[in-house]
C-alpha cells in the first residue's frame, strides 16, 4: 500500500462524503467524493481508483446494481457502506461482488482499517510459507484454466476472460498455492483477511460459492473446489506455476 492510494467515496449525503474525505486525507489517502452513480462513472473514466466506498441508496441508481455493473467490467475493490444493515443486505452486497460491507452508523477508524485490509488482501500480499519475491510475475495453469497474476485475469479453458473481484482473486490464489490440500475456513480467513479482518466463516462460504460460479462449477457437484465435510475446502487439480523470479 502506498500513501497515494486513491479512494472514491460514493454517497448521496454530503456530510458522509466530507467525513470520509477529511479522515482519509489525514491518513495519507487521495480521495474523490461523488454523490451519485453518474459521478462514479465520470470519475472512473477520468482517472484510476484503488478502492470504492459505495453507499447503496443513491438518488439515480441502486448501489447493488452499480456494484454488479462495476464487477462485470472491473476488479477495483468495493466496500459497501450503507444504512441497510440487515444480514440479507450484507449477503446480497457480497454476492454482488463487494469485497466488504460496513453498516451505518460507522466509525471512520473502522472504515480506515477495513480499507487497508481490503487493499492488502486484494493486492495479493504474499502468503505465509510462500516466497514473496517474484510471486507477482506468475501465471497458474489448472484444469485448462489460467490465472494470470500480473493482469489479475482468469481465462476459461475456452479462452474466455472471466472477471474476478479482488477477494475472489485473492482466494483463488490461496487455493492455487495449496492445491490438493484441505484448507479449513479458519486458514482461509487467516490467509485472506489477516488478523484484522472481522469476517465470518459464512463469508468464506459465500466467497467460495461465488468463486465456484466464476469457475462455472455445478454448485451441487463441484469438481474443482470441493467441500470436505467438517474440514473445509480443497482445490482438486494439478496446478502448474509458470514465470516468477527465483
Amino acid at each position: 500500500m502506498t500513501t497515494t492510494d486513491h479512494i472514491l467515496i460514493v454517497d448521496d449525503d454530503p456530510e458522509i462524503c466530507t467525513l470520509v474525505s477529511r479522515f482519509f486525507e489525514k491518513n495519507g489517502f487521495r480521495v474523490s467524493a461523488v454523490t451519485d452513480g453518474k459521478g462514479l462513472w465520470a470519475i472512473l473514466h477520468q482517472t484510476t481508483v484503488d478502492l470504492i466506498v459505495l453507499d447503496l441508496m443513491l438518488p439515480d441508481e441502486d448501489g447493488l446494481v452499480l456494484c454488479r455493473t462495476l464487477r462485470a467490467s472491473s476488479n477495483v475493490p468495493v466496500i459497501i457502506l450503507s444504512a441497510r444493515g440487515e444480514d440479507v443486505d450484507r449477503i446480497i452486497g457480497l454476492e454482488m461482488g463487494a469485497d466488504d460491507y460496513l453498516p451505518k452508523p460507522f466509525h471512520p477508524r473502522e472504515l480506515l482499517a477495513r480499507v487497508r485490509s481490503v487493499l492488502r488482501r486484494t493486492r495479493g500480499v504474499p502468503l505465509p510459507d510462500k516466497p514473496g519475491k517474484g510471486e507477482e510475475d506468475v501465471s497458474y495453469h489448472f484444469a485448462g484454466w489460467v490465472l494470470d497474476v500480473p493482469t489479475r485475469q482468469l481465462y476459461s479453458p475456452q479462452g474466455e476472460k472471466i472477471f474476478l473481484s479482488g477477494s475472489e482473486f485473492a482466494m483463488l490464489r490461496i487455493f492455487l498455492n495449496f492445491p490438493n490440500q484441505v484448507l479449513s475456513r479458519e486458514q482461509l480467513l487467516d490467509y485472506s483477511y489477516g488478523k484484522e479482518g472481522e469476517t465470518y466463516d459464512r463469508t468464506i462460504d459465500m466467497q467460495v460459492s461465488r468463486l465456484r460460479r466464476r469457475l462455472k462449477e455445478d454448485p451441487k457437484t463441484p469438481e474443482l473446489i470441493k467441500t470436505v465435510r467438517s474440514l473445509g475446502y480443497v482445490l482438486s487439480a494439478r496446478v502448474e506455476k509458470n514465470g516468477g523470479r527465483a
Binding site: 444504512a83 451505518k104 452508523p105
Partner: peptide, 17 residues
Amino acid sequence: GHRMKGSGSGYGLDAIS
C-alpha cells in the same frame, strides 16, 4: 432522520444517530 442516523456516530455523536 435517515441521514442523521447514518452520519452522527461517524462524527463521534452517537446520540445524533
